[in-house]
Nucleic acid binder design. Structure first.
Lengths: 188, 188
DNA sequence: CTCATTTTTTGACAATTATCAAATTCCAGA
DNA sequence: TCTGGAATTTGATAATTGTCAAAAAATGAG
């Protein structure tokens, strides 16, 4: 709860009434490692926030291959803003990499909140924009031709990933094979 | 002008008053092929809409290499929603591929409009979300390992690109060399 | 702590792709 | 219509990366 408030406070000064509303409408769910938090193809009905743990987002293509799209750690919302806003099927599955605790608000409560406190529209727009910027950074990363350079760029921008995420998912995230990643890492 | 209204009408029923406001605050700028519409690093002060022509978005990396990030054709807004909202430097340069006409609204007018007609907050959120979904599709495309498959996927999802955009930019967009693209195309 | 399972590494080889060079085709402006 | 520069293609070669197989290391459940 405090973590959610801290997150929002980074964008706007939260009033007592707003605090109350939020407190009254948050729910808590805990997931064990390996459990699914979000299923590709489902239409989202809540907005989640990771308070502890780590989640991997991936999508399964026509050939049944999994492609890792990203990760969410504590103090970050759990993606899918676009599907949430548009009420469209989520484009990825979220799976807990570790035991993970989340806090969430139902879609109806979320929109009630926005209607009651419209000044948060701008906050939401800003948050979505920030995640859009991140998404843009990802496509820039993927356009780096050499695998070695891609890995180096990831090390520079998100060193914490390598500590916390199994290498096979890092490889998948970078769009290379596990073996290639292993060899890149072996050379110093 | 009509094109902008049509675009917005896809999201919401536009009232007379709103129409008036929009008409009073739109400006027109025309660009010759090769001219820069948007410069990487600048902070955006307007929101543009392409009414005719085509624009290529690219960023220049530390080594001075250009990487094509996307294209905007007629009846589409000219990206950078994230930078616009956050007032941060734009992450790419927009260059006219053809003679291009744009219509735009200044940032101040845009925010005045949103304050006057707050029901458009939801529209803006939806539009941003849609472009976020597109950005997500791009990263999915780029994670396809084989160049051949990447090209095939592009052909399927955006065949119009190949008709209208010089191949060297398509190659850059797909993250492969011009020669490789040429050879992929040569084989049927 | 032990054992089974998963993850990561390593090796050999094949396929893909980048690089460099040159030829050819295309296109815009004179 | 002609022409020079840009875009695309083609060729030869080297480097990178994927694939398959197996070994080694790490992890977790009991």
């Amino acid at each position: 709860m405090q973590q959610v408030i801290d997150f929002i406070s980074g964008f706007i000064q939260v009033s007592e009434a707003e605090l109350h509303f939020i407190a009254d409408n948050l729910q808590y769910t805990s997931f064990k490692k390996g459990e699914i938090l979000l299923q590709q193809g489902q239409i989202p009905n809540k907005l989640s926030f990771v308070i502890k743990g780590a989640v991997r987002g991936y999508y399964t293509d026509e050939n049944g291959m999994e492609h890792t799209l990203g990760f969410a750690f504590e103090n970050h919302p759990l993606g899918a803003f676009d599907s949430f806003t548009q009420q469209m099927p989520i484009g990825f599955t979220g799976c807990a990499l570790e035991n993970t605790d989340t806090i969430w608000i139902s879609q109806s409560a979320f929109y009630r909140f926005l209607e009651t406190y419209p000044r948060y529209e701008k906050v939401v727009r800003t948050i979505i924009s920030q995640y859009m910027t991140l998404e843009g950074e990802k496509t820039k990363l993927l356009r780096i031709i050499s695998s070695k350079e891609r890995y180096r760029a990831l090390l520079e921008t998100q060193p914490e990933l390598i500590q916390r995420v199994p290498l096979k998912y890092i490889a998948s995230y970078l769009g290379i094979t596990i073996e290639t990643l292993s060899r890149i890492r072996a050379k110093r």
